[in-house]
Amino acid sequence: MNRRSSGGSEPQWEGASTGSPDAGASLAANIAAEVTAFAHEVGSCDPVTVVGAQAHWDVGGTPLAGTREVRAPAGVWEHEPSEMTVRCGAGTTVADLSAHLAQTGQMVPLDPADDAATVGGVLACGFSGHRRLRYGHVRDLVLQTRHVDASGKVVTAGGPTVKNVSGYDLARLLVGSLGTLGLLAEVILRTLPVPAASQWLTGDGDPFAAFDLLYRPSSILWNGSHAWILLEGDPADVAAEASKLEPAGFAPCDGPPPIPAVGRESMRPSDLRALAGTGGEWLAEVGIGLVHRHEAVQAAPVAPANALLMDQLKQRLDPDNRLNPGRRPW
C-alpha cells in the first residue's frame, strides 16, 4: 500500500495545503489508512456484500440473506486537472465526483440514471451511461483500481497514468463483475473536459440516418417513434450539426424522457431497427445496441467454454464464495 508514498508527486488530501512534501506524504498515508480500514472491515472469513447507494441492487441477483454489509471508502482524494485524472474512493457518489470535477471544467461521463449511485457501484455493474456513443464504455475510463480480495488483502491493478499496459488488465476484469471477484476500494479515472456546448434535439426522423449524418454525436436515444439526439462540443459545431438535423425533422428540446432503469437488453446496433413497431415502453441507444426497459430482461447465455473460464476465475479468486454471494454477472 505504501509503495508509492515516497513519490514526490503525491497529491494533496482534500483541503490540504499544496506543494508541501509533508502534505503529500500525509495524503498518501490517509488514503492508505482508508483503504486498509476497508480491507480490515472486509476481513477474510465470512460472506460480505458491498453496499453503495443500492441504485442497482438487484442486478445479477440480490445478496444472500444474512450477508454482512460493508461500505467502500468515499471521497475525491486527488484531482490533477492538467493530468486529466482523478482518484477517489469507490464509495464516492457520482454526484459528489461530478460536482468536484465541475469546479475545473472536467467530468467523468459515468452518467448513471441516479447520480446518488456510487462510482464503485457503476463500475461493478459495468453500466455505461447514455453518452457511451461518444465517450466509450465506462471500463475505458478506468486507469487503476485497488480492490480488497477474498483473503482481505489489497490488490492494485492498472496504473495511475493516462496510458498504461503494465501487467494483466485486472481492472477491466473487475468492471462488470458485480463485486464477485473483489471489492473495489479506490479507483483512478480518466477525466475529460466538459464540452463547451451541449444541445438535445428531438423529432420523429430516422435515428439511424441521423447517426450516419453526424460526426460523433454524444447520444441517440430512440423509442420506436421518436428519437432524442445529444450534440456536444464547440458551440459553432453543435449549431452546425443541429442545422443538419433540422431538415430531418429534429428540433431542440430540453432532453429525453427518463430512461427506463430495470432491464438492459443487449443486441447488435444493427438489430435495433427490428424493434420499430414493437410494443412496450423502451428506449434504445442507437449505435450501441442497448435497449432500456421497465421490465427485467433475461441475460443472453454465455458460451460453455467462457462459462467454464468464468467459474474457474471465481473459484480461484474467491474459493469460499464469500464476495457478494447470490450475485452472478452471467
Partner: peptide
Amino acid sequence: GEITVFGGVDAEPPGFDLRGLFVGS
C-alpha cells in the same frame, strides 16, 4: 485447444470481461 469467442458486437456481452483480460495478455 478449444475455440471460443470473447466479448461481442452486441452492447453488453454477459459475464466477466474475458475480452478485456485477453487484450494485452
